[in-house]
Design a protein around this nucleic acid. Structure first.
Lengths: 120, 120
DNA sequence: TGAATATATGAACAAGTATTCATATATAGA
DNA sequence: TCTATATATGAATACTTGTTCATATATTCA
């Protein structure tokens, strides 16, 4: 298993292993999409918006006030969240209400939270 | 519940609701840490590394070859993953073997995957 | 129709980040 | 000790991205 040979610039250390792992890798596109998906969670503003929406649907103004940010900033981020199919909206006159559109969000958050708390 | 009043520049639409949600929000630091945690998953290279390590521990060279990237690029990313406590390493001579250091990773990935596949 | 306002959006800017390149460190073997 | 090599790392660069600012759109109400 561990056939050592010149490495890094030309050859491989564990050639069989690499080939074996290569074949078990999901398609590039799937991994790319997965990274794009998690990228959406990788921003404090968006995390805060999602946590707010755990409690209740809210309009853009409400969220902006809650987070102490401009309406524009929130609107831009809601666009990202909607693009990722994490929130949906509902229009009532001039007011647009946003709410969660995914059952996995809470589960994903909880997993992340657990990881963080397991560290000293 | 829906007391409408001038909005956005000065006042709030649903003042009670906002106050209520505000009190249920986790502390800022926790949300920040959570975003930082997910940020680590938000990169294709790191996702690919983690998927590779699902199969087996691997040395830096192996990973670089597997992904068709330079040793330096992989090393930099492994540093990020280690900083997030997602991988650990073990040294054997000159060779450093990396492996997963977290049980939640697979669960988190699966949740993300499910979300993505539920979209047409 | 005209004024007020809730939201959306394009462009610009600043801040963050992934990769590359050059090089340093550390270990094995001669 | 000297060479080879596996990995780490700092600096520079190119690219991405979050926010702001100005403005457009859409809807309500007079």
């Amino acid at each position: 298993m561990t056939e050592k040979s010149p490495c890094c610039d030309i050859t491989i250390i564990h050639e069989e292993l690499v080939e074996q792992v290569r074949q078990s890798m999901p398609p590039e596109e799937a991994l790319f999409n997965l990274a794009e998906f998690f990228k959406v969670f990788g921003d404090t503003t968006r995390i805060r918006i999602l946590y707010a929406l755990f409690q209740s649907e809210m309009c853009v103004c409400d969220i902006a006030h809650l987070l102490g940010m401009t309406q524009s900033a929130i609107s831009h981020q809601l666009r990202v969240l909607k693009g990722a199919k994490l929130v949906r909206n509902r229009k009532e006159g001039r007011v647009v209400y946003y709410s969660l559109d995914d059952d996995h969000i809470k589960a994903i958050f909880d997993q992340g939270y657990q990881h963080i708390q397991e560290q000293d």
